[in-house]
Amino acid sequence: MSASGRRSGLLFGVLTLLMTFAAPAVPASAAPATFAHPGVMVSRAQLDFVRGRVNANAQPWRDAYDQMAASPYGSLSRTAKPRAVVECGPYSNPNLGCTDERQDAIAAYTLSLMWYITQNSQYATKSIQIMDAWSATIRDHTNSNAPLQTAWSAASWTKAAEIIKHTYGNWPNSARFGTMLRTVYLPEVVNGRANTNGNWELTMMEASLGIAVHLEDRAVHDKAVGIFRTRVPAFIYLPSDGALPRTPPGSGIDTRQEIISYWHNQSTFVAGLSQETCRDFTHTGYGIASIAAFAETTRIQGQDLYPEIGDRLRTALGFHTRYEREGIPSWLCGGAVKRGLGPVTEVGMNQFVTRQGIAMPNTQAWTEERRPHGSNSLFVAWYTLTHANNPS
């Protein structure tokens, strides 16, 4: 080989080596090559398990189904109340369509579950009627709570749409519904809100991921996963984080005093504490619910994030159910904080106790005492039915 050939070969080798190190690695949680459907929090295998348990009158699924069927969300006489513009201020004040939208979305999901379990097409038809009414009407969300309202509603819409589209199928306006998700809902949630309380951004990412799966949008999937992977460590503390909790990237929260203020004036940090614990357990529960729902969806899609966030979620569940049962110690939140975690524990507990065989005595006792868990009327619904002791 000539000298020039050797130089060319050497140069090619160096360039190849540089490209190898410079090229970004494909993240382990990148969007799947093929999306699984239905695939937003509940899979076909999970639905089949539930249907079998309900039809066998097994508990707690039978009671959970009966609770759902008796709720207003499962009514075949329900009339949707769509609006072109939903306006939601702080704590839904003003409330111009906020409650109507959230509850219609939960109803669409409820009816989709009833369709699958009973195979009665009337329930699928009613779910479609509700989704069609909104997709034909809504154009925008306004006022300060618009991102959160959008997230709450989209979290339910996407679960309903996945079940109906992929197990019932006779839905002529499904494309219009997908356009609604992309143009009305996605812009409000996809970029997150780093400087808000954590439950906001976590629910926004749950909604974004659901939209990504339904639309098979890999870019949106990967963006949601990226934000989620930094937000969970900024919401649940572990001692490995150091003396202070992590903060959301881009939030501008970086001094000790800013962090303590952001954590609602809690200055003693222990494993499982949440950024919103000292606000109240209810808002903490919203965040826990979205963390579990997000991880459940990634598991269904074959890009399981439970191994990455599992210690935080499991510890947070144990921490908060312990103090739900025992009361608040003096070092936590000054000894006084409003409890009421809500119906949010089944999904995480199922992952750790049923699938992994990990003992969670406080979480299991607290959860089982309150079964069946229903809906919080925002975006959480029927977790006992779908996830209690469900190995699928």
Rank of each mutant, 00 (worst) to 15 (best):
G5E: 01
G5C: 00
S8E: 11
L10Q: 07
L10I: 08
L11P: 01
F12T: 06
V14P: 03
L15D: 02
L18Q: 08
A22V: 14
P24N: 02
P24K: 11
P27W: 14
P27K: 09
A31W: 09
A33C: 01
T34K: 15
V40W: 01
V42L: 13
A45L: 12
Q46F: 05
R51H: 14
R51E: 15
N57V: 11
Q59P: 02
P60A: 05
D63V: 00
D63R: 13
A64E: 09
Y65F: 15
Q67N: 02
Q67M: 14
Q67R: 12
M68S: 06
A70W: 00
Y73R: 08
Y73Q: 02
Y73K: 01
G74V: 02
L76G: 05
S77V: 00
P82C: 10
C88A: 13
N93S: 08
P94Y: 08
T99H: 06
R102V: 05
I106W: 01
T110E: 01
T110F: 04
Y116L: 05
Y116E: 00
I117A: 01
T118I: 01
N120V: 01
A124K: 01
A124S: 05
I128T: 08
I130K: 08
M131A: 11
D132I: 07
H141M: 05
N143V: 03
S153R: 01
S156K: 00
T158P: 12
A161V: 00
I164C: 03
I164R: 03
I164N: 08
H166L: 07
N170R: 14
W171R: 02
W171M: 02
P172D: 12
A175I: 07
F177H: 08
V184M: 00
V184I: 07
L186M: 14
G192Q: 06
L202H: 12
L202A: 14
T203A: 02
T203M: 03
M204A: 04
L209I: 04
L209M: 05
I211V: 15
L215D: 03
D217K: 12
D217A: 13
V220Q: 14
V220E: 13
K223Y: 10
A224V: 06
T230S: 15
R231A: 10
P233Y: 15
P233T: 10
I236R: 08
I236G: 04
I236A: 11
L238T: 09
P239M: 12
S240Q: 14
S240C: 02
S240M: 03
D241G: 03
A243V: 12
R246E: 09
I253Y: 10
D254F: 13
T255W: 11
Y262R: 15
T268L: 10
T268M: 09
V270G: 07
A271H: 03
Q275F: 07
E276W: 07
R279C: 08
R279F: 10
F281S: 09
H283W: 12
Y286E: 12
I288R: 01
I291R: 08
I291C: 09
R299E: 13
G302W: 12
L305M: 15
I309Y: 14
D311S: 15
D311P: 06
D311R: 11
R314C: 03
T315G: 15
T321A: 13
R322N: 15
E326L: 14
E326N: 13
G327Q: 12
L332W: 06
L332P: 06
V353T: 09
G357F: 13
T363N: 09
W366Q: 04
R370F: 03
H373T: 04
N376H: 02
N376M: 04
V380D: 04
Y383L: 08
T384K: 07
L385A: 14
A388T: 01
